[in-house]
């Protein structure tokens, strides 16, 4: 009987426990949202490839990629969906142990970065970005989430390669 109750309780609370994960999945299938998702499967496959290099900088970059879990970038020009994303983002930030890393304003864009402490100094386990503002006269909202064992020094390079907005500013975090 006791085990049953525990199971039942666990089952009931499962959705709440699951809240901790930023859940932006619903936006991926929306018509007005452009999504870029790279999954853990991809990074696992990439780590299969032997990319031995003498160059230390390249090696550090490879190490970063091999330790990533997933990358998600969602972009929308729709104001309503943008507002919803904003709300979801803030709810997530409040509900989880995530710290503000930096924020800045550039031209008509407001950018916020959040991160979760990682395995060691200079590493984070999650990097979140919210960007809102105007781009070429159109309203734009961008949410980016990167999970894994992330070396902050390397991640700006990756963000740059993926043409993620805010990549330049990421370079300044040390």
């Amino acid at each position: 009987m006791k085990t049953k109750t525990v199971f039942l309780l666990a089952f009931c609370f499962y959705p709440i426990l699951n809240w901790g994960q930023a859940n932006f999945t619903k936006y991926e299938s929306m018509k007005e949202v452009s999504a870029m998702v790279i999954t853990q499967n991809m990074f696992k496959l990439l780590s299969e490839i032997d990319l031995d290099t003498q160059d230390q900088e390249t090696q550090a970059y490879i190490d970063l990629i091999e330790n990533l879990n997933d990358i998600k970038v969602l972009t929308t020009n729709n104001v309503e969906i943008g507002t919803e994303m904003n709300t979801d983002f803030n709810t997530y930030v409040e509900s989880s142990q995530i710290e503000e890393l930096m924020r800045f304003k550039e031209k008509s864009m407001q950018v916020k970065f959040y991160s979760k402490p990682g395995s060691q100094e200079g590493f984070v386990s999650e990097l979140l970005m919210l960007m809102t503002g105007q781009e070429e006269g159109e309203p734009i909202t961008v949410v980016m989430s990167i999970q894994g064992d992330i070396d902050l020094k390397q991640v700006s390079k990756l963000a740059n390669d993926l043409k993620v907005p805010g990549a330049k500013q990421l370079k300044n975090i040390k």
């Binding site: 299938s29 999504a35 870029m36 999954t39």
Partner: peptide, 9 residues
């Protein structure tokens, strides 16, 4: 197993 996706519907 999804490797990656880009774009919208």
């Amino acid at each position: 197993k999804l490797l990656m996706k880009i774009g919208n519907t």
